[in-house]
Each structure stands twice: as structure tokens, then as C-alpha cells.
């Protein structure tokens, strides 16, 4: 695993298992009676008070349901204080077999600046899509494009593949002119697809700090 550099050693497993043994003991002593364990008909005295106030422990006699899978516990070598023992075993010198995991969030690794492309429409290079069926990105600046009921500059250029300065805008696909139910193809863009920016988004120019 990329984020987990080293696997636990036998030593930590032993520590783990000793903790587990402690856990099991605590679990047994502190459990509550199972309200579903026997017949649903309750004796009034058995029914817990319907209140949110704290209740004292009542010391149930069946800590684990019969369906519980028995936990296989190896013989613990010792039972160290769980709050300090693991720390104590990670001396800086022990890095080669450091049994511990440091969680690395890939999104926190490195800041990615908000440097969207300033390339004008018509000058952008096509970007590879997220996957073949995904909508293509806008490889040019879109921040000053407003889509209103009266004007849609995206459509103005991309309808039919507008040609400007030697480059051709990616044409709006046939699917965007096809009625979903009748399959009739219209000369007008499917009005549900009018908000181009719901799907076609720009990308920042810096690469991601992690492999895609």
C-alpha cells in the first residue's frame, strides 16, 4: 500500500493482542443485559426506565451473543500500558521496521494553486478526458463567459465547430441535438444541455501533486 510504508512487526502484533485481551476483559465486566435475549414479553421491573439519564451498570451475564465469532487471541507476552508502550517502541533508530502508520492524505500533500489557464478560446490544446465517456474539458478561459437566456457564447463558437484563426472549436455532438425519447434530431440544442458549464469545466495548468 502506498500510504502504509511498513507492515506491523511481530512485536506490535503482540502488543495489539495484549491490548485485545484487556479489551475482552473490560467488555465482559461492563456489558449490559440484552433486551432481545429472551422472550419479548418484558417484566415491568426488567424494562429499563425510559429516560435519557445515566444508568448504573447492571452486570449482564451474557456479554457476547452466541453469534459472536470467537476472537483468536495469541498468548500475550506482556500487557504494556496502551497509552505509552507503542510510543516507547518507536525509537528513532528503529525506522527500518517502524511498525506505525502515518496517514498521508494525498489532498493535503501539496498545495495546488488556482492558476486556471488564461488561454483565450480558440488557442487551447485539447486535454485528455477523465475517461472516454466523460465530457471534454474547456481548454481555455471561461471565467468571463456568462450564460443567460439571451446569449450563450459557448454555443456561439462550438455550434457546428466555429473556425477562427486557423483553429476549429470542438463541435457540439449530435447527442446534444437529439430528443432523448423520440430520438428526433433538431436544429436546436437540447435545452436541458444549455448550461454547458455544468459539465464542461476548465482545469488548472499545474499538474496534480500525485499520480492520477
Amino acid at each position: 500500500m502506498k500510504n502504509f510504508s511498513v507492515t506491523p512487526t511481530a512485536k506490535t502484533l503482540a502488543i495489539g493482542f495484549s491490548l485485545l485481551a484487556l479489551v475482552m476483559v473490560a467488555c465482559t465486566s461492563a456489558d449490559e443485559p440484552d433486551p432481545t435475549a429472551t422472550s419479548p414479553a418484558p417484566a415491568a421491573t426488567q424494562a429499563p426506565a425510559p429516560t435519557a439519564t445515566p444508568e448504573p451498570p447492571t452486570g449482564g451475564d451474557t456479554p457476547l451473543a452466541p453469534t459472536e465469532t470467537p476472537v483468536v487471541v495469541e498468548e500475550p507476552t506482556k500487557a504494556p500500558d496502551p497509552t505509552v508502550a507503542p510510543v516507547a517502541t518507536t525509537a528513532p533508530t528503529a525506522i527500518p521496521d517502524d511498525p506505525f502508520v502515518i496517514l498521508k492524505s494525498i489532498i493535503a500533500e501539496e498545495a495546488l494553486p488556482n492558476n486556471y489557464t488564461e488561454v483565450a478560446p480558440g488557442d487551447g490544446e485539447l486535454l485528455e478526458r477523465l475517461f472516454p465517456d466523460a465530457p471534454p474539458y474547456a481548454p481555455h478561459k471561461v471565467s468571463d463567459i456568462r450564460i443567460t437566456t439571451k446569449s450563450n457564447k459557448c454555443v456561439t463558437c462550438h455550434e457546428g465547430g466555429f473556425s477562427a484563426g486557423g483553429s476549429v472549436a470542438t463541435g457540439i455532438p449530435l447527442s446534444h441535438y437529439t430528443d432523448q425519447y423520440t430520438l428526433d434530431v433538431s436544429n436546436d440544442l437540447d435545452p436541458r444541455r444549455y448550461m454547458c458549464t455544468s459539465c464542461h469545466v476548465p482545469q488548472v495548468t499545474d499538474p496534480l501533486p500525485w499520480a492520477e
Binding site: V23, A30, V71, I102
Partner: peptide, 17 residues
């Protein structure tokens, strides 16, 4: 913070406890 990998049994026993 550092963590250690645990089995599901160990983790869930700890949670239940």
C-alpha cells in the same frame, strides 16, 4: 499522529468495549 494496523476483531472489540 501514528496508528498501528489492527485486525477487525481487535478494532471492533475495542470499539464495543
Amino acid at each position: 499522529p501514528k496508528y498501528r494496523k489492527a485486525s477487525w476483531s481487535e478494532a471492533l472489540n475495542l470499539v464495543a468495549e
